[in-house]
């Protein structure tokens, strides 16, 4: 089946099954490999992208369900330069291996759009992404620095 997908402001036509996972369509069809595969069952958040501004886990999102929606990946998060979240990630030296950070940054960017100064508890409740390197303390500091800014 052919679908029109609006990704990072551009419309792409893809010929895939209705239930093809958005993650793999982004990566393998469109070449947008900034979005990562971690578990394939929405347990880890490495594949987080925005659909109409909401953070969703693309590994369990069927392409057929997001036709016409505004899809944003890490590649399209900022039209120019870095977003404040990305800059805070550099300032606080957050990433280690960095593999989870695309998903982490997407999830946190969506949260901050709604709640610019989350408490530690609010952050922990809404951000369930996994980082195996253990960058959580720096993520917390980076998010709080954005709230102060």
């Amino acid at each position: 089946m052919t679908f029109q997908l609006k990704v990072n402001g551009q419309t792409h036509e893809v010929d895939v099954e209705h239930d093809a996972p958005l993650l793999w369509v982004l990566r393998d069809e469109l070449g947008l490999t900034g979005t990562k595969f971690g578990c394939g069952i929405s347990a880890c958040g490495a594949c987080t992208v925005h659909v109409n501004g909401e953070a969703i886990r693309s590994c369990v999102t069927a392409v057929g369900t997001v036709v016409g929606a505004d899809i944003t990946t890490i590649e399209g998060l900022s039209a120019k330069g870095l977003t404040p979240v990305q800059q805070a990630w550099i300032d606080h030296q957050v990433p280690q291996c960095g593999y989870c950070q695309s998903g982490m940054i997407m999830a946190i960017s969506a949260l901050l759009a709604k709640n610019p100064s989350p408490t530690d508890n609010e952050l922990a409740e809404s951000i369930t992404n996994i980082c195996r390197c253990g960058t959580y303390p720096r993520i917390r500091n980076a998010v709080h620095s954005l709230a102060k800014a």
């Binding site: 490999t33 979005t35 550099i90 990433p95 960095g98």
Partner: peptide, 21 residues
């Protein structure tokens, strides 16, 4: 000293094994 690898790890451009094309 800030880590040299970090800028490419915040914008999705680090090319991991998974991302090889």
């Amino acid at each position: 000293i800030p880590r040299v690898d970090i800028p490419k790890k915040v914008d999705g451009t680090t090319n991991y094994g998974l991302d090889v094309k």
